[in-house]
């Protein structure tokens, strides 16, 4: 009945635990207890048994308060931390591609997979960019790792990406420290898009920007999503951002996914007490 061929990411049982855990962890952590840390063994259950499927061209929102595990989930999918348990399956949105489990990949394959197939935009630009290099150098990093070895062609591609992300191309060799916060987010987006990734991860990309700048960055992301049919995972604590971009949303609290559904359903008919609190606080 459904178009099963077009999924891009399939996450099952994804768990990240800091600590060894104890028999009383299960009964004393999670949203019902208001904490992800076990009071007996101090183990932090940052992300517990997360599962979802992401389809080609779709934007999935992940919403939750600080410490809810949404950034942990993002880092797990970006392969920057290793899960304690669970699987992350990725497949190219083409007909005859085979799915691969990112968790069991060796470091070398994983690094090159991440460079080629994933793009990430961090909340703080200095996490995604090297502030000692020029703007162009930062955008070029993924291309260079993918064996682009012609400076002229690399610069053509950077210029193309800068125009696409509404950055002034004549500032290609400028120091990123001279760029504003909104522009740095664009540089991050340009870098993320440089390899034509199959999945774009957006981690609180507009938090900390003032409203007008925030609006322009969101418009850019919407345009990219629209024009390139880009599949995106969008982490935000801001329901307004989620509402604008994501059609499906996951709500996290204390390491658990407490609710998932269509974004309009989450906003208008929230089921979980926490989601109801979140929605009533936002509107």
């Amino acid at each position: 009945m459904t178009d099963v061929a077009s999924w891009v990411l399939n996450v099952t049982g994804l768990t990240k635990r800091y600590g060894l855990g104890c028999p009383r962890c299960a009964e004393s952590t999670g949203p019902d207890h208001g904490s992800s840390q076990c009071p007996f063994c101090q183990t932090v259950h940052a992300c517990v048994n997360a599962g979802f499927t992401l389809y080609q061209g779709e934007v999935l929102g992940i919403v939750g308060e600080s410490g809810s595990g949404k950034s942990t989930l993002m880092q797990l999918i970006n392969l920057t931390i290793n899960p304690t348990a669970g699987e992350i399956w990725y497949r190219e949105p083409t007909q005859d591609s085979t799915a691969m489990n990112l968790v069991t990949m060796d470091g070398f394959t994983r690094r090159h997979f991440r460079n080629d197939r994933l793009g990430i935009v961090h909340q703080r630009p200095e996490l995604g960019l090297n502030m000692r290099f020029s703007v162009g150098g930062n955008v070029a990093e993924k291309l260079l790792l993918a064996n682009w070895r012609h400076i002229g062609r690399i610069r053509e591609r950077i210029t193309e990406l800068m125009i696409q992300t509404e950055l002034p191309p004549e500032r290609i060799d400028d120091d990123p420290n001279t760029f504003s916060g909104g522009m740095l987010q664009r540089v991050q987006i340009a870098k993320a898009l440089s390899s034509n990734p199959g999945l774009l991860l957006l981690d609180e990309v507009t938090s900390g920007l003032d409203l007008s700048v925030q609006a322009r960055v969101l418009d850019l992301i919407r345009r990219i999503q629209w024009e390139q049919k880009m599949t995106m995972l969008l982490v935000s604590h801001d329901l307004g951002v989620i509402k604008q971009l994501a059609r499906r949303t996951i709500v996290m609290k204390n390491g658990f996914i407490v609710e998932s559904g269509l974004t309009d359903q989450i906003l208008e008919d929230p089921q979980h007490p926490y989601t109801q609190l979140l929605v009533s606080s936002a509107l």
């Binding site: 470091g107 070398f108 994983r110 690094r111 090159h112 460079n115 090297n130 290099f133 020029s134 162009g136 150098g137 930062n138 070029a140 990093e141 993924k142 260079l144 790792l145 400076i151 690399i154 060799d173």
Partner: peptide, 19 residues
Amino acid sequence: HGEADYGRMWVYMYESVIK
């Protein structure tokens, strides 16, 4: 080194050409 993650070193080379 383990992951052959030499992108940043190549950026260093790129920067040297640009500067």
